[in-house]
Design a protein around this nucleic acid. Sequence first.
DNA 1: ACCTGAACACCGTTCAAGT
DNA 2: ACCTGAACACCGTTCAAGT
Lengths: 189, 189
Amino acid sequence: MVTAPTTNADSLRADSARVRARMLTAARARMIDGDLELPMNAIAKAAGVGVGTVYRHFPSRQALLESLAAQSLQSLVGAAVSAAANPDVAAGLASLLGAALQRQLTDPALAEVLAATDAACLETLDLSRELGRAIGTLLDRARAAAVIRPDLTADDIRRLMSGVQHAVRIGSPTDADRYLEILLSGLRP
Amino acid sequence: MVTAPTTNADSLRADSARVRARMLTAARARMIDGDLELPMNAIAKAAGVGVGTVYRHFPSRQALLESLAAQSLQSLVGAAVSAAANPDVAAGLASLLGAALQRQLTDPALAEVLAATDAACLETLDLSRELGRAIGTLLDRARAAAVIRPDLTADDIRRLMSGVQHAVRIGSPTDADRYLEILLSGLRP
DNA sequence: ACCTGAACACCGTTCAAGT
DNA sequence: ACCTGAACACCGTTCAAGT
């Protein structure tokens, strides 16, 4: 039995996890305050750690962003899987787009991650692919039912949703539903 | 006759205009190189002037951005006025949206100015209003001809075009026409 | 192993000193 | 009048030194 090293590693891991959580909390607080820049030095100070520690956990701004968005992304994947399983294909599509828009508006980190071309963390890459698959399934069914243009890909949907999010962001949240209707109507064949 | 002071002021103005042009050229060069940050210090160095001079001419990043976008914006206003005068309303709308998208993709400064809520320079405000009026006229005619949803405003169009631009930017320019079709189709009643 | 924080490069912005 | 550029504050990023 090797309990001592394990305990040691566990306590290290526990401490590391606590520090990590403090940094993420600090970063989130800044984002909520409207600062989307995520300055590493400022986050380190707010979390009470050295800058190097922030860099150890998050090698880049993108990595930090993805960690911030992980929960939202996970939740969006769930919504997409549900939507793809909806017997009413049109309703599934509408609910997916609604979920994607709402979550992006609530979590700016998610909006940035969905707009990014590629991922910094493997976890994000996995979730991203899972999202792509769910959307793909939904699109296949929608195409077969002739409720969408035949040329749409999962990437098109991701980008167009990012576009609608952008349009709502520079306008007012009250426009969200109308802009979503416009997109949904435009997707029909 | 007071020729001397006039001459003096003229030469000052001429010099000032030359310096201003050098700064705009330097800023544009950076933008073309893919740097959308417009760092004031770097622009000053590239233009061979002191930082203070950049600030004298452009009190803020936004002001510099608007000066960079002025020509594109002017040209877009022209396209909008033409489009509003097109006897074929649907064709006018399509040509306006096409012009707006193309110019935004060509000139990132224009894209940012159109996405901004308000203007830093009076000239931009004027052009912006003129653009709004032209779009408004076009929308009125389109509504009367029942070729668009009745609830669309000029601001909606500006934001949705900004959204499509965003979607194309995070994707590929080859998607521009398809995304434009989707928007146009979504705008119909 | 993990963390700290000084150090360097760079950018935003101001303003006293020059012409 | 207009311009210069030093100066200060701040942020990104690295890495030698600590525990």
